[in-house]
Amino acid sequence: MSLDKFQIAKRIAKELQDGFYVNLGIGIPTMVANYIPEGIKVVLQSENGLLGMGPFPEEGKEDADLINAGKQTITTLPGSAFFDSAMSFGMIRSGKVDLTVLGAMEVSENGDIANWKIPGKMVKGMGGAMDLVASAKNIIVAMMHTNPKGESKLLPACKLPLTGVKCVKKIVSDLAVMEVKDGAFHLLERAPGVSVEEIQSKTAGKLVIQGDIPEMEF
């Protein structure tokens, strides 16, 4: 069975370590916050100017002045801090943020990522994604292995306009966990019940399979 988006978020949460400052992108990455392992402290950075982001507010306690980068109403946790957008990207650029999790339309075998534009069709803009991928020490991409047409999103080279080059370190898809290094996707884990052959058939870029590939654990 391929993973649903909740399970992808849950698997990514296993990558979190105590003391990490983490930036979570819009969509599945945001959901990672729901699965932070017990006993560790992670501080969430929202690039619109907040460290120490908390859960969504209770009904009736929404505050228009307190939102995340996806424009959703949120709360703060004890120890949080507000700052302006230049300082926010200053901490990203200077490598203070330990982990960035974001979505992608395409990833290439050398770690390039495309997630901001489909020429002639969709022009939403890059937001903070280009700044994040250009500077983050560790980037995990949360994505579906294939697009709705069934075509692989893990490619020898991206076809869409790039967001950043040689930056993706790890991918958690609905089918597999892969490390991106030395110009290839290295298969680390497979979704429960998903065969290595299926992952291979849905990966257009170079896939390295070494030894027995274990099933993911949550």
Binding site: P57, E59, K71
Partner: peptide, 12 residues
Amino acid sequence: EKRIEQRTVNKK
């Protein structure tokens, strides 16, 4: 008006 773009809440 301070409009909220994405009103998101935890249901009580």
